[in-house]
Amino acid sequence: MTKLQKRTLRISIVLAAFLAVSPAAGAMHIMEGYLSPAFCIAWGVVCIPFLVKGFFEMKKVFAENRKAVTILAMAGAYIFVLSALKIPSVTGSCSHMTGTGLAAILFGPCTTGVLGIIVLIFQAVLLAHGGLTTLGANTFSMAIAGPAISYGIWLVCRKCNVNKRVGIFLAAAAGDLFTYCITSFQLAFAYPDPNGGVLASAAKFLGVFAPTQLPLAVVEGLLTVMIMVALENYAAQELKAIRFEK
């Protein structure tokens, strides 16, 4: 090895160690300024049909029940606050839930999409998580794709009579993992590997964020189960009342 190679290796080892104890682990918001204009617009356009569908569903609910406006606003605020609360941790690192799985199970995927984009706007503006130009990409991965998978898995588990808690765990954890995969691919599309193209690049992004995102998905799944159990204890009736989508 040349001197330079040695140095590079050393740097990568340090970085890898750094990575293993990465202090901040939240949902994978793509940062402001990360994507080129074409991708910003493209991801935004991809979201539109889903958001429009969610919007019309909401409108229908509103027409039937005006009270839904404050309930839905509360639901949005709830997702925001839940995702801003610090998850307890042993190492003192600071991580957060995404709340997407919980929202999908509670409100259904379409409503979650519309609430999700509102939450993401406020996360960008109030917490500096994510950004305006990356809003489209983040909305797609976190408010549309993730919740859709969560909701799908949850439905399938219920149909197949899988234990309720297992179903919720799988739904929430898979939603998180799916969001993480989508985000990695979004990053890879924007910065394909010069040698291996998009796939190789996606593999790199998946690898780089795996140490934070994999445990987080498990934690998200566990917490979602625990919160759902708590909710069923305190609020079985309210839960029935908020099923907006049939």
Binding site: L85, P88, I227, V229, A230, L231, Y234, E238, A241
Partner: peptide
């Protein structure tokens, strides 16, 4: 963890009531 989940659940009920 239990506390976190209980707060998450409670907060949701509080949110609905307030709503």
């Amino acid at each position: 963890f239990k506390t976190f989940a209980a707060i998450g659940g409670n907060l949701f009920v509080a949110a609905l009531k307030k709503g």
